[in-house]
Computed example of a mutant assay.
Amino acid sequence: MNIQKLVSYLVENPSALKQVANGNASLLHVDQVTASIIVEGFQKEDTIRSKKWKDAG
């Protein structure tokens, strides 16, 4: 499993990430703990990004 390729795919396909986050899809060859960590990382990045925009305004 290449995490970098997986993350790149999810960046390019946010709808797939949303399906994984909602529990409607899974990531092949990725255990549930790792999948949760990946989704959490994206969610934290979104929170940081939105806070930066809010603070810039």
Rank of each mutant, 00 (worst) to 15 (best):
Q43K: 15
I38H: 05
E40H: 11
W53L: 15
V33P: 00
V20G: 02
V39R: 07
N22C: 02
G57W: 13
Y9Q: 12
I37L: 12
L17A: 03
I37P: 00
V33A: 14
N22M: 12
A35E: 09
K18R: 14
D31K: 13
S36L: 04
D46T: 07
G57C: 08
Y9V: 01
Q4H: 12
A16S: 13
L27R: 05
L17V: 02
E45F: 14
A35Y: 03
S26F: 07
E45P: 00
S15R: 12
N13G: 01
L10A: 06
D55K: 13
V39Q: 05
S36V: 00
S26W: 01
V20M: 04
Q43T: 04
K44S: 03
E40Q: 13
K44M: 10
E45Q: 12
D31W: 07
Q19E: 15
V39C: 05
V33H: 10
L17Q: 04
D31Q: 09
G41W: 07
Q32D: 13
N24V: 01
K54A: 11
A21T: 04
I37K: 14
T47G: 07
V30D: 02
T47E: 15
W53D: 11
K51V: 04
S50M: 11
L6S: 06
T47C: 03
K44C: 02
Q43A: 04
W53P: 00
N24S: 09
Q19R: 14
H29S: 09
S15H: 10
K44P: 00
A56V: 03
G57E: 13
S15G: 03
H29D: 10
L27G: 01
V7Q: 06
H29I: 01
A25P: 01
K18Q: 12
I48A: 09
K5W: 06
L17H: 04
K52H: 08
K51D: 06
I3K: 15
A16R: 11
H29W: 05
F42G: 04
I48D: 07
G57N: 13
F42T: 06
I37H: 08
Q4V: 13
N24K: 14
A35N: 02
P14N: 09
V30C: 08
L28Y: 06
G23D: 04
L27Y: 03
D46R: 15
T47V: 09
Q32Y: 05
I38E: 04
N13D: 07
Q4G: 03
S36M: 05
G23T: 03
H29V: 01
T47A: 15
Q4N: 12
D46K: 15
K18M: 08
K54L: 09
G57S: 11
G41L: 08
L28H: 07
K51L: 15
L27F: 02
N24P: 00
P14H: 07
M1T: 10
T34S: 10
M1R: 14
L28S: 11
K18P: 00
L10E: 02
E12D: 14
Q4R: 15
N2V: 04
R49Y: 08
V39K: 08
D31Y: 06
T34D: 07
K5G: 09
A21S: 13
F42D: 06
